[in-house]
Amino acid sequence: MQKRSTKIVETRFGIGQVVKHRLFPFRGVVFDIDPEFDNTDEWYEAIPEDVRPAKEQPYYHLLAENDDTEYVAYVSEQNLLLDDSGKPVRHPQVEEIFDWNSENRSYTTRDNFGH
């Protein structure tokens, strides 16, 4: 049995928070977090070098949207800001994972998610 080291990383955002990209016009809800970059080298190298983020930081999986479409995004912490619009995300998979609290204008993980 192989031991797996546990690395505790502080993150700026949490599961269920709505965030927006600081450079590009999209927003989304966080559904997973990697403590550091965990995607392909090909994906990473496709980012223009002048805006390529460091690998040694948290990366967030988002159910994202822009004016035209919904998709899944993978974004470095340095490129995210809190979205304070108070509006729910329209991505079609949001309701599979989260419940929207209209009073608090925030998401909570559904009780039955993952079961």
Rank of each mutant, 00 (worst) to 15 (best):
A46W: 01
K55M: 07
F37P: 02
E70K: 05
G16W: 11
L62V: 03
I33G: 07
L62C: 02
Y44C: 08
K7G: 14
S76K: 04
P88G: 04
G28C: 00
P58I: 08
K87C: 14
V18A: 01
R110D: 10
A54G: 13
V51R: 11
P35L: 11
F37G: 06
F26I: 01
W43C: 09
D38Q: 09
N101W: 02
G16V: 08
E10Q: 11
E36Q: 10
Q2D: 15
D67T: 12
E49T: 04
D111H: 12
N101P: 07
Q78G: 05
Q93R: 08
D41R: 06
E103V: 12
L23A: 09
I15G: 00
F98Y: 10
E65G: 01
T109S: 12
R22D: 06
T11W: 04
F113C: 06
K7V: 09
S102W: 08
W43D: 15
H115G: 15
K3L: 10
P53D: 03
G86H: 04
A64E: 07
K3G: 15
Q93D: 05
A64M: 06
P53L: 01
D68W: 00
L63E: 06
V29H: 03
D99S: 10
F37A: 05
I15V: 15
N79K: 02
K87E: 15
F24H: 07
H91T: 05
L63C: 05
V30M: 06
G28A: 05
V94D: 02
Q93I: 02
V94E: 08
E36I: 02
P35D: 15
I8T: 14
H115F: 14
E96D: 13
E70V: 08
F24G: 04
